Amino acid sequence: MGSTTKVLNANRLKIGISIFDVMPYDKAAERMTYVHRALESGQLQVYEYELEVEGQIHYEEARLIREHVTFVTQWLH
């Protein structure tokens, strides 16, 4: 029993694209704060946020962890 998740700016998702191109500036800046924390600390970073997609508010949780010195993996729930 799965559900379909709508993606913000799905037509812009490509390898190498900036998060600032697919998310509102304030949400992208917040995400990058947690990316930097994950890179610097090596610790799992978890935070919750709201995101409006097609007029509906979605409540999400992001989990970010450093995989390499310059690479962060993200899970969304």
Rank of each mutant, 00 (worst) to 15 (best):
L64A: 05
K6Y: 09
T33W: 06
G16S: 00
S41H: 04
R66Q: 04
Q43I: 04
G2F: 14
G2V: 09
I17K: 13
H68A: 10
E52M: 05
Y59F: 11
R66M: 00
H36V: 06
L8E: 10
V35D: 00
G16A: 02
F20P: 01
Q56S: 10
I19C: 10
V22A: 02
I19K: 03
V53T: 04
D21E: 15
F71N: 08
L76N: 15
E67T: 08
K14N: 12
N11L: 12
K14Q: 12
A29S: 12
V53W: 02
H58D: 05
V7G: 13
V46C: 06
W75G: 04
N11G: 12
V69R: 13
G16P: 01
A29W: 06
G16D: 02
R12S: 09
E54H: 08
R37T: 00
S3E: 12
L8V: 09
S18I: 03
S41A: 01
V22L: 04
E54D: 15
E40F: 05
W75Q: 06
A28V: 03
A62D: 07
G55F: 05
V35G: 01
L76D: 11
F71L: 14
L51C: 10
A38W: 00
E54V: 04
R31M: 09
I19M: 10
Q74V: 13
M32E: 04
V46N: 06
E40T: 03
E67D: 05
Y47N: 00
T5N: 12
K14F: 09
S41Q: 03
T33M: 11
A10E: 15
N11T: 14
M1G: 15
H77K: 15
Y25D: 11
H36G: 01
L39F: 05
M32L: 12
V72Y: 03
E52D: 10
E52F: 05
K14E: 11
R63W: 04
W75A: 06
E67F: 07
T5F: 14
I19E: 08
V53A: 01
G55D: 08
Y47C: 01
R31V: 06
H36I: 05
H58W: 05
G55A: 11
T4S: 13
Y47R: 04
F20H: 14
L44N: 02
H77Y: 13
F71D: 09
A10G: 07
K27F: 02
E52I: 08
E67A: 13
A62R: 01
S18E: 08
F71I: 15
V7A: 14
I65W: 10
I57P: 04
P24I: 02
R63A: 02
L13T: 03
G2R: 15
E40S: 08
I15P: 01
Y59N: 09
N11H: 15
G2E: 13
V46G: 00
V22R: 02
A28M: 04
A28S: 07
I17D: 08
M23H: 08
R63Q: 08
L44H: 03
K6I: 07
Y49K: 07
L44S: 00
E48K: 09
E50L: 06
V72H: 02
A29N: 06
Q56L: 07
D26S: 14
I17C: 14
L51N: 10
Y34F: 07
N9E: 12
D26Q: 13
L76V: 15
A62I: 02
G42F: 05
